[in-house]
Design a protein around this nucleic acid. Sequence first.
DNA 1: ATCTGTACTGACAAATTAGTCAGTCGATTT
DNA 2: AAATCGACTGACTAATTTGTCAGTACAGAT
Lengths: 111, 111
Amino acid sequence: MPVSKKELSACPIDAMLSIVDGRWKGTILWRLSEGPMRTSELHRSIPGITQRMLIRHLQELVRDGILVRHQERSTPPCVRYSISRYGLTLLPVLNEICKWGRNHLRLLSKA
Amino acid sequence: MPVSKKELSACPIDAMLSIVDGRWKGTILWRLSEGPMRTSELHRSIPGITQRMLIRHLQELVRDGILVRHQERSTPPCVRYSISRYGLTLLPVLNEICKWGRNHLRLLSKA
DNA sequence: ATCTGTACTGACAAATTAGTCAGTCGATTT
DNA sequence: AAATCGACTGACTAATTTGTCAGTACAGAT
């Protein structure tokens, strides 16, 4: 029986990774770490992502308490996503991840 | 065209996550962070993992330079895996991930 | 009345990842 | 000579995740 990392695991590493797990979640969080953005802005700013995946990931991140969805009841509708207070605690971790990743990419390009 | 995170991405976060991406890689690294282990020891120490997945993940981590495989040409064969010098640079990152994950699990269990 | 833009859904197909099952190989014990 | 052990492979199936395609709803502009 295949097991996805989405299932709640007792392993803290898996628990954290499951939050960020998803083809585009890292990138989405990275974009939003610079400030709130509208759905369509995010869409434009992440080349290659489909609207479907963007929204699915956003919803999961909201469900997990990492993002907040602000809706302004206006026309045209304007929805903004931002990193929640809890989500902010994730940023230092993402920063470490990013630092390591940057160095890793550098090494790969030299090899 | 679905895109896996395994493809080399220019995003440093994705680059790092792709290393740890795989149902059991976090756990494997966590076990090995306490010292080298034999294949069968690892297998026993990770409940639920199949031999196939263990070996696949080990091979990927070796390919990515995170682990080293030591083979003693003896009978019965004795193979040990350990974290490489490069892999050691990943440990602080995993530590941050783990700290956050631990807190996250705590919150989840309270809710 | 129709068209547009924004945010979003549902149903489904394709790709990717994980898991199952049955081997192999070489040396060694029975 | 057959059975065993540890590490591993190959071929295949099943589950999960991504992506495609076509909508919906709402309000304002044309």
